[in-house]
Structure formats: C-alpha cells, structure tokens
Write a protein that binds this DNA or RNA. Structure first.
Ligand code: FES
Ligand code: FES
Lengths: 144, 144
DNA sequence: TTTATTTCGGATATTTTTATCCTATTTATA
DNA sequence: TATAAATAGGATAAAAATATCCGAAATAAA
C-alpha cells in the first residue's frame, strides 16, 4: 500500500509529535530506534518531510526534529503521504492508466473509486495529534 | 496501490476473459498490445497466473491463454491480486508491522482497517465476468 | 514425421527502491 | 573563538521490481 519510506515517515512523524508535545527534539538515531527503521534512510525521509514543511528541523548542538505543538491537530496523514509517495495512491487510477478519468474509466474504476475515496478521506481527516495520543496512552504501538 | 505486475495481470485477465467468451485463445503479443504493456514481462505474469490456476494455457500451435467460460463469474479480482502481489495489501498492517494484530495495533490500525476491509470486500466480490462485460460494451477501457 | 507455432523457464539487463557512508554546514555552549 | 553536536546532502551500495532475450518443450497441422 504505502512504500517503506512512507511507513517510516508516518511512524517517525508520530514519534516526533509525541516528543514535541513535551518540548523535546529528537534525532534520527532515537527515531530509528523507536520505530525500528534503518537510521540513515530514515534521516533522508526526515529531510524530505522538512523540505515539504511537514516537520521542522534545527541544526547544530541541541538541535533535532520537531513539530509545532499547536499545529499537531492540523497536520494530516495525507500531507506526510503526499510528501513521500505523492498523491497517486489516493488520486490515481487503480490500474495505472495515465489518470483516473470518469469519461475514460478503467475496468475497476467504479468499484475502486469508493475504496480510494475512503482512503483519501481517512488520510485527510486523521491528524498527527490523535495518532500520537494513542501511542502515549499505550493504545497503539510503533513497532512489533 | 498495486504493483505494475499486478495491474498488467488484471488487465490481461480481462482481455483473456473477453476472448474466451468467444472461444478464442490469445497470445502474450496480442495481450500486451491490447493493454499497453511490455510483452515479455506480461508473459511472465501470465505464467504466474497459470501456475496459480487463475487462467489456463495451451502450448503449441493454435495455443494461447484462455479461461473456462463457465468459471468467469467465479474468478474474483482477489485471486489475481493474491497470485501476483500476495495478500498483504488487504490483510497486512498498513504501517508494515509484522502482522496486523488487534491486540498490538499500529497507530493507524483502527482507521486503516476499514479502508482495507472495503478493498478486500471489493476484490473478493468483483468477478472477471463483470469487468469483461463492461469492456465489451464500451463502458470501460483497458488502456489510455 | 517434419514443420511451424506457441508457452515455459532460465539467464541477464535495467530501473527503482531501499539502505549505507562520509563530508560539509550549522549552531549552542564552553 | 574553538569545540562539540547535530542536520544536510552527495556518493555509493544492495536489493527488489521491472523488463528483455533466447533456447527448450509441447502441440497441431501439413
Ligand atoms: S480510471 Fe482507473 S480508477 Fe478511475
Ligand atoms: S496493526 Fe497496523 S493495520 Fe492493524
């Protein structure tokens, strides 16, 4: 469904969110340990999220990755997915036609669009804040 | 969402279905032309579908790929997807945890499972027959 | 039985994704 | 200002997905 990069990106963002809530910045090393991902690769993904302004980074000593605590509820999964995998997964054609077009639908268009729209709706309406809350309260987990 | 291989596999199966309906076998060459895919790669995917008994092949002169006309309505998209991409897309964890486990859910589990189940339901309840019918009647298309 | 046709399957090549490594740059503090 | 700590980013490497090529095996028809 999502690329590895995107999975790491989502989990990393959640971990950053939790820490930002407590005013702490985190490093790729801490993140990779917490989400069970390759550190250097994770760092690259974080860079991409910074470029797309999903998260923020502070260089130098006492630096690290953070998100604005007040923006947590406005940062949606869709922003993370779009920054890393693009929006093809929730906007593109399920069978890889150049674009999904009502006037030139692929064989699964009518069936697929509902699934895709539900995915889109889910991604656009799920905030980093709620995901972070569930981790903090031990309801969900970032690694096996 | 689906791999290229899977997209080709689905489209190829539909084209084979249409022809089988008229008692005709088709070659990888005809298929690749019709679905706009690389021929040799498509042939490999067809082999996989044959191994998984989703479609049937006949070697030698006047051979080709076919499906049993009477089974068309019982062949579901899920069989094709499972044969090529495996069932991770509609059974696995959205964030790549080893398995999707209600008792050890990832952050998106509650939100994701509905989407995934709708996808699963769609794949398991969409037959090759109905997809082929829509192509035959010009309602949908196999290529851009 | 020979020939033409067609799928099968192994080997290889290319591209994309995933992953690692090393140096440059930035920045807080001593 | 010097130092240590941290992200940025380029260069590579490894693995997986995508794609191509060719000979072997099977089969129908001449
Ligand atoms: S055209 Fe394929 S999903 Fe809409
Ligand atoms: S545990 Fe991740 S989707 Fe269920």
């Amino acid at each position: 469904m999502f690329s590895k990069a995107c999975e790491y990106g989502i989990k990393a963002s959640i971990f950053i969110a939790i820490n930002s809530y407590e005013g702490k910045r985190v490093s790729p090393k801490e993140i990779a340990k917490e989400i069970n991902s390759p550190q250097a690769f994770t760092a690259k993904i974080l860079q991409a999220l910074v470029r797309h302004k999903v998260i923020n980074s502070v260089k130098g000593a006492y630096g690290g990755f953070e998100v604005n605590k007040n923006e947590l509820k406005y940062i949606k999964l869709s922003q993370i997915v779009k920054a890393i995998d693009g929006d093809n997964i929730y906007n593109g054609c399920g069978l890889g036609l150049e674009k999904c077009d009502e006037n030139h639908p692929c064989p699964v268009h009518e069936k697929f669009k509902d699934v895709r729209n539900e995915l889109k709706h889910m991604l656009e309406n799920t905030s980093l804040e709620e995901l972070a809350m569930d981790i903090k309260s031990g309801i969900s987990f970032l690694k096996a």
